[in-house]
Amino acid sequence: MILGALYAIHAKDLLSSVIACGIVGYSLVICFLLLKAPDLAIVQIVVDTITLIIMVAVVLDSSREESYSKLDTHGYISAVTGILMIVILLYFFAISIQSLDVLGKSTLRMANYYIEGAAQKTGSANLVTGVVFDFRGYDTMGEAVVLVTAVLGVLTILRLKGKK
């Protein structure tokens, strides 16, 4: 995945960059299957395919080559800033990783309530579906609102005649 991501950023052709991004997405599907999350894998396959189609359509509609030119002259300041940011991020990562459980040994804190008798409460055998549509129904409603807003935004942006 990391190799795919690096290639996606450094590829010269935009089309191969987009396709490398698709590779990263599909390897995420495999990771989800290994982590015992089949619902997520299904949704990720669909979403990743749609994203890939949209990106390929945009890239094919326009120029594909990326023009390279020289970096800015004040490269030192950028490099120092970048290293500083990486150090700060690593510091917070080291702090937060200690508060997490070891991988595979995590405890169910909140989810015990969701698991116990969820099949009777929600009538759904799939616990993820039960959580999404029953215990956290308002979240799902907000998600639907976000989707509708995004569709309206895309339609507004892509109108043929824009106002001046």
């Binding site: 997520l40 979403v47 994203t51 949209i54 993820v128 999404v132 979240d139 995004a150």
Partner: peptide
């Protein structure tokens, strides 16, 4: 199941933001 439900929401919203 709780993080999985959250990620399920986040994936769909990611699709919306990417298309935007």
């Amino acid at each position: 199941p709780l993080p999985q439900a959250l990620v399920l929401t986040a994936i769909v919203i990611g699709l919306a933001t990417t298309s935007m």
